[in-house]
Write a protein that binds this DNA or RNA. Structure first.
Lengths: 237, 237
DNA sequence: TAACCGAACTCTGAATACAGAATTCAGAAT
DNA sequence: ATTCTGAATTCTGTATTCAGAGTTCGGTTA
């Protein structure tokens, strides 16, 4: 029986592979991406690489390099602030809608999401903490009943993961993030949409302050751009 | 003296050309786009067409067709409602920020934007009315000081123009839209960000109601997909 | 007449080739 | 030692080709 799920195209696979490298910091800010090298290391021709790069540029993960080619967008405090401004209203909307439309699902599934988040903090693994944070917020996006919220927010989360990773790698974990998540969830479960929205917006504003001030404290990276890392990536078959 | 402005790539030009065709309704909902035909009519190879199509898909203007290829996304009431939900919070944010950060620019330039809008209504040209509506809102996005708002909203406006075009073509013009715009502008000019945001959100919610109810009244289009229109487009050199 | 099957055709994704722009590097001039 | 110039190299955008999947159409069968 042939699977009915469409096979993921090479472009999509290359997009995800590059996105993963960026998110994990293996391609750093302002690293220039060379199409032929990526194509070789992934074992594909240049065409799907080029197409994936165009999509990544469109989603803000890459920007035009000086001269020619594309580079990884720098991590900039102003962009983080702008992103969190947008996030505050989008997450506020998602949370209000979740409380209004899906309080019951929140009661069914929410506690497990919170438990996984607290376990991630105990694990002290940065990747797990970030993934758990994302899980919580995408859980709310899903409950909102408006697929556009996740659709619009998705590409931004990749940028945010890089910022969070950078900040967490060099600083300490914010202590009360999961208390805040839990408080938000309680309002959602109780169907109190205005209170849920207010908490969500305050949570995002607080996170913005923490992240941007931590970025301000980080040492400015050396102006020399390190060479592009050439790591062999196996093409998924 | 050679111009320092970078020449727009073929992909970008093809993207804009196709986007224009979609927005003007020359490619209708669920029309399947044939890469070779578009390439021929634009006088380019298939590759930049394919890349442009991928970007348009990523921006929601196209979706996968049954079987293979890409088609123009259908106009759906639910998507419009979801879009306007997102718009309400984004336009609210933009308007509040504009009042907070750029009231003076609003005082300098806002009256001309309103005048052009009222002239567009008097002209009875649908294209002009839509362009003027967009001008007003992008004016506010610009005043907001957060470039992400325009960046996120941009692709959605193409979809909205199609909906507006469809509705306006078959119905009457909403009468008080520019009164509402003017009231919003007055709050922005006065720097009253909370009042500006409130008016903006109410304006968007009202527009959503009008658009979705008008869509409900429209006759369901015939299920036969008309043939793709082959119109010769000159490649810009 | 309707359903089925296979051949022919169409279209798309990916690979490859080509052309031109950008970058690098080595040698010459100051 | 520094600057400049031209050649060589690298890289990107675009065109072309190839292979395979999907669609259409005509003929056959029930």
């Amino acid at each position: 029986m042939r699977s009915l799920a469409p096979q993921q195209s090479l472009v999509d696979q290359v997009y995800e592979a590059i996105l993963g490298e960026i998110t994990e910091g293996k391609f750093g800010p302002e690293d220039r991406l060379i199409q032929e090298e990526i194509a070789e290391s992934l074992g594909v021709s240049r065409q799907p690489v080029q197409q994936a790069l165009l999509l990544l540029r469109s989603h803000g993960l890459l920007c035009d390099a000086p001269g020619r080619g594309l580079m990884v967008t720098p991590l900039e405090e102003e962009r983080v602030r702008n992103l969190y401004e947008v996030r505050a209203v989008m997450d506020g909307l998602a949370t209000a809608n979740a409380a209004q439309r899906n309080a019951e699902s929140a009661r069914l599934d929410g506690a497990a999401v919170i438990a996984r988040g607290r376990a991630a903090v105990r694990s002290k693994s940065i990747a797990r903490m970030i993934a758990a944070d994302m899980e919580f917020h995408f859980f709310l996006y899903g409950l909102s009943g408006n697929p556009l919220i996740a659709e619009v927010s998705g590409p931004h989360w990749s940028y945010l993961r890089r910022v969070m990773g950078e900040v967490l790698m060099r600083g300490t974990t914010p202590d009360d993030i999961w208390n805040e998540h839990e408080a938000i969830l309680e309002e959602v479960m109780a169907g109190r949409s205005a209170a849920a929205e207010k908490l969500a917006r305050a949570h995002i504003a607080g996170a913005s302050d923490v992240l941007t001030s931590r970025m301000r404290e980080l040492p400015v990276p050396a102006p020399e751009t390190p060479p592009i890392r050439k790591r062999a990536l196996r093409r998924a078959r």
